[in-house]
């Protein structure tokens, strides 16, 4: 016990500097006004941002769901391919992540713009320009594109660990392809689904740049509002902190729910 505590000391310092102190500052600002006096006003003003918060959640949920739908079959087919192919595929998936996500998002902007590449291309065939930029669709596209690897990788890493002989055992016991999937592969990949969702949903819901680049001023998410409160034309650190605190609490609740699912999965099985 003592030994463990000693070894944990650097971690405690790290936690204090990078987690506890900043959190304390956020809490302080959230419950004080501009003069530093205690107040609930900031918290109460959150009501004005309910629409934005709601939008954040459903964009987050939808994007995460699309990521899951795309990533699951992809991760599975990678996990079942030969060693060399696996390495190459994982590499290809990670490669875009080496480029800054802002750059990647700007690239999408120039593709989707009203006189961007796609509309120009359509123009050659006499098709009138389609409004793509500054739509919810564009925002969701940007989210899915940026965060897809974070869904694929945890799924893949859980799926490669599914022993081929377990799948064969299921077939041996009379399962057809669908039954093998629903009774063995899906339950065994639940931990990957959980961590994939966590790794995608949380950053999506708190992001701001993607909405601003692809959604313009029309679509704002809670992250945009927080950013505005700190770096916008009319900064208000107190309300900004209150919003940040709210977001944190909401995410903690979501994670709690996710973990609950994970635990359930574990109780049933391994």
């Amino acid at each position: 016990m003592m030994k463990a505590r000693g070894a944990a000391a650097p971690f405690a310092v790290w936690m204090a500097i990078f987690t506890v102190i900043p959190l304390g500052v956020v809490v302080y600002y959230a419950f004080t006004n501009a003069d530093g006096a205690f107040t609930f006003e900031n918290i109460l003003s959150i009501r004005e941002y309910a629409g934005s918060l709601l939008r954040s959640f459903w964009i987050g949920l939808l994007s995460t769901f699309i990521c899951l739908l795309l990533a699951y079959p992809l991760a599975f087919s990678i996990s079942r391919s030969k060693g060399r192919v696996q390495q190459t595929m994982v590499m290809l998936i990670m490669m875009p992540m080496w480029m800054n996500f802002l750059l990647r998002t700007y690239a999408w902007q120039s593709l989707l713009e009203n006189n961007g590449f796609i509309n120009q291309f359509l123009g050659w065939f006499g098709i009138p320009p389609i409004q793509m930029i500054n739509t919810t669709g564009a925002v969701i596209l940007g989210m899915v594109y940026n965060f897809l690897p974070f869904m694929i990788l945890p799924l893949y890493s859980v799926m490669v660990k599914i022993d081929k002989s377990v799948i064969e055992a299921a077939q041996d016991l009379g399962s057809n392809t669908m039954q093998v999937f629903s009774r063995v592969i899906l339950p065994l990949s639940v931990p990957g689904i959980i961590s994939g969702i966590t790794m995608v949903f949380i950053p999506i819901i708190s992001t701001f740049a993607i909405t601003q680049i692809l959604g313009g001023s029309l679509i704002n998410m809670i992250g945009d509002n927080i950013e505005m409160k700190f770096f916008g034309t009319a900064p208000d650190y107190n309300v900004g902190s209150a919003l940040a605190l709210l977001l944190m609490v909401m995410l903690l609740i979501s994670m709690g729910i996710m973990n609950h699912f994970d635990k359930n999965g574990e109780e049933v099985g391994a």
Binding site: D163, S165, V166, E168, A169, A170, Q171, D172, L173, G174, S175, N176, V184, P187, L188, G265, V268, G269, A270
Partner: peptide, 21 residues
């Protein structure tokens, strides 16, 4: 296919389902 054959196998490394009791 295996699932239509009236044989069952005990695999070299058992291959029990780890998610099931």
């Amino acid at each position: 296919p295996p699932y239509k054959r009236p044989v069952n196998t005990i695999f070299q490394r058992y291959a029990l389902f780890p998610h099931l009791n």
